[in-house]
Design a protein around this nucleic acid. Structure first.
Lengths: 222, 222
DNA sequence: ACCTGAACACCGTTCAAGT
DNA sequence: ACCTGAACACCGTTCAAGT
């Protein structure tokens, strides 16, 4: 909001009119995305939300793909990652915890990361932190990059699950009802799954810990 | 194709007409999906592909969501997982390799797993194999389920990356060009990334090995 | 029971026209 | 330079009508 009129009675609309800029279009798109959902984020809907003609947006955005790309950038932008812990393991842990937190702050936006053609530039900072930490641990080269993608892909997989809500479709009660699972010898599944006690936080921490333990072994190839 | 006419001159269309069934609709949807892409798989397009009115499909499918669900089931159905290796580690490894292979056989269909509200029933078999193997290794309860999801989420994350093609947007040459990365102190990233030598197979194997190493440590909690 | 055409309420985007 | 309305080529889906 550039300059708020002091005491004028002029309609407030004028203040935002003409202030349509790429920055504002993308910012409001993120707001609208959070309020509704990725499915409902549409050029026409965004235009209405901005009180403007649909075609007005095309002055600041190439097409919808470009808009989504911008929203994805904005959504991950401004993230600051702590990088001062002495232990390299803990540095990686903290970095991915922060990344996950930032993603979960905009649950609807997480699915953008699946839609987008190319990953937002914001992933480079966690990558730098991870590669630096791994280098300190004696892991470098191709292996270090693969380790980063192991962590990153686990995070993305977990997030896309997490965003969809707790554990849908893996309820054993429902599974038993299904024809396909009856007598299929899935005894371990039947005994193991209890969606009500599922906890994404602890699952995430378990994953992180397991990967870091595994990487620890990779430090000195046998 | 049921019964090919022997020497008749009658138009071939009659043979497939009326044979419209849920099975066929879903099967052809998968064919069309493989040929084109998830974006292009549309009710109207599928109807045209089947030589039928769009509304005809609604006799065999509730709505598009139901269609996609059916395609996802079909796409993963009929998979047989080897489960006879003596080593529990190798059993898990083989299972997830087979799962990945099956997914990559229909690259366009992989994105269905992200779109679908609930995971296809087919994931229960790998889950059973994994839980059984982990039980043999002394890992059970909540931990075993979390371990399965660690493996599964890694696989899904890797697949969604893999399907999009090799490493797009993480080219350092392109990154340097970008304003945001200039002077951001991303020295490790600049030195490490070389998309041309990236190999999804080896990245997958590295991930599997690392997770299994990590799980090995989880066998006896300290 | 299954298929059809017409119609409705939406999309993203192009184009020619306004200021 | 920026915004607009009308129009185009698409969507998924409802409805009433056909067989």
């Amino acid at each position: 909001v550039p300059n708020k009129p002091t005491g004028r009675k002029r309609p407030r609309v004028r203040a935002t009119r003409g202030a349509l800029t790429r920055e504002r279009v993308i910012a409001e798109a993120l707001v609208l995305l959070d309020q509704t959902g990725i499915e409902e984020l549409t050029i026409r809907g965004l235009a209405q939300h901005l009180g403007v003609s649909p075609m007005a947006l095309y002055n600041h955005v190439a097409d919808k793909e470009d808009l989504l790309q911008g929203v994805a950038e904005k959504f991950l932008a401004g993230m600051a990652f702590s990088n001062d812990h002495p232990d390299w393991r803990e540095r990686i842990r903290i970095c991915f915890r922060e990344l996950r937190s930032a993603c979960l702050a905009h649950p609807q936006a997480v699915r953008l990361l699946e839609t987008i053609k190319r990953p937002p530039l914001a992933v480079f900072q966690p990558m730098e932190i991870t590669l630096a930490a791994l280098a300190e641990a004696g892991i470098g080269g191709q292996q270090a990059v693969q380790a980063f993608f192991l962590l990153m892909n686990f995070l993305l997989g977990q997030l896309s699950y997490e965003v969809r809500g707790p554990f849908r479709g893996l309820d054993p009660a429902e599974a038993i009802r299904s024809e396909r699972l009856r007598g299929a010898g899935l005894s371990h599944v039947e005994n193991a799954v209890s969606p009500d006690q599922w906890n994404f936080d602890s699952a995430f921490e378990f994953g992180l810990a397991t990967i870091l333990d595994g990487l620890n072994k990779a430090r000195r190839p046998i």
